[in-house]
Design a protein around this nucleic acid. Structure first.
Lengths: 215, 215
DNA sequence: ACAGTTGAACTGTACTACAGTTCGTTCTCA
DNA sequence: TGAGAACGAACTGTAGTACAGTTCAACTGT
């Protein structure tokens, strides 16, 4: 801990801040899936130049929240059946591969802590908070793979996942959320790798099915 | 097969074309790793506006070839020890997870075909060609995961890998390349999943070690 | 109903301008 | 002579304007 900790002066660009802001708004539902992001409108509203908005949107593309279509600009990704399936399949492959590995004690701690925070969040009843902690829990699982690149990739998926997870979580009782994750945590802690993999597969399959039922 | 197949008019933007062009040049070594991409210079040379170059470079960032640093612009990724390790670790996790799955006969065919093409390429002696086919072979393995999102992610890694692989391939006899891959193919075809995983791990470990020896 | 036309809205790209950063070089003073 | 300050060129980040080409929905005439 240095005396200068946290003293950091704007190590970021306007475009990056815009990207963050837009990202939040999109997830908050200000733009529905499939909507176009109109550059001039946004630029005018936020008081920045259009090219800056364009850069921000390129950053959003990087995080997977929007896709570019030629001459139509940026479009918010839509939760088609195919998208959801592709997303959850990738998740399943990563998490099960992760669960098949032997965790270090540090990693085990991290997962346990994440679970505790999830439990705490369910008590507040704040959906956003629950979703956040839910995602962190799964991120910690993926970290068992010991691969920074895959961690980053999963973090990208996470942004999209939050979309869907928010919907799911609103439909579900907090206790259920806790139980589902408790099972996974227990399986991992028990050292029974096959069980852990199976439980994760379960959890994800169930989510996909509930999601698709809604679409 | 429609009568209109292949009839497609410029379904792409200048920025995209620039990104493709720059991408090629970077891989051909026109820019060394760690070099900065100077916007005005490139814009002037190619006769396009600076903001268009900026967009092109953002696309390059998307494919992972460059990274942005605030107030320094785009920098070609450098092959530090950490980078190489992170890249190859991700590769190893994906490919071994893939090899642990049971291939469909179609997937098996695809891998076999990829191998045959690799063999053919080694006979031409053209390094670029060999590297291409090598990468395709591994891409086919990853496709065993049945996840389009992971396929795309791996394709991204591939762009970076080509860098390193070109170096490695130049140092290696074509017959060795064939043998190394033959072993993997055989293991997969034999249905012995553990062996397949082990051989892949082997192959990748060997590559990393040779690479790091060079750095 | 429907093919064709039109026009507004918007994207893709170019050009200009300037403040703020970075970084190598020169200058300064001990 | 050498550490550090000051300078300046080169470049990035952002703003703003302009315009050609595309999309799309409304309008038109048949």
């Amino acid at each position: 801990m240095s005396a200068l900790d946290g003293l950091e002066v704007r190590r970021t660009t306007t475009a990056q801040q815009l990207a963050d802001g837009l990202s939040e708004r999109i997830m908050a539902g200000a733009f529905g899936p499939g909507d176009r992001l109109r550059e001039s409108a946004i630029a005018a509203e936020l008081g920045v130049a259009r090219n800056t908005i364009r850069e921000a949107v390129r950053i959003l593309e990087l995080t997977g929240l929007v896709r570019y279509e030629v001459n139509r600009g940026a479009v918010v990704i839509a939760p088609t059946k195919e998208n959801v399936e592709a997303l959850y399949t990738a998740r399943e492959r990563l998490e099960t591969a992760a669960a098949a590995r032997t965790p270090s004690s540090k990693q085990l701690d991290a997962i346990t802590t994440a679970f505790d925070e999830l439990v705490k969040a369910t008590k507040t009843g704040d959906t956003g908070e629950i979703v956040d902690k839910d995602l962190v829990f799964h991120q910690r699982i993926v970290e068992l793979l010991d691969s920074s690149r895959l961690d980053e990739f999963f973090a990208g998926l996470t942004k999209e996942l939050r979309f869907y997870l928010t919907v799911l979580t609103k439909e579900e009782k907090p206790e259920e959320v806790v139980v589902e994750h408790q099972v996974i945590l227990d399986a991992i802690r028990s050292g029974d790798r096959d069980k852990a993999v199976a439980e994760i597969r379960n959890h994800i399959d169930a989510s996909v099915q509930r999601l698709e039922a809604m679409l």
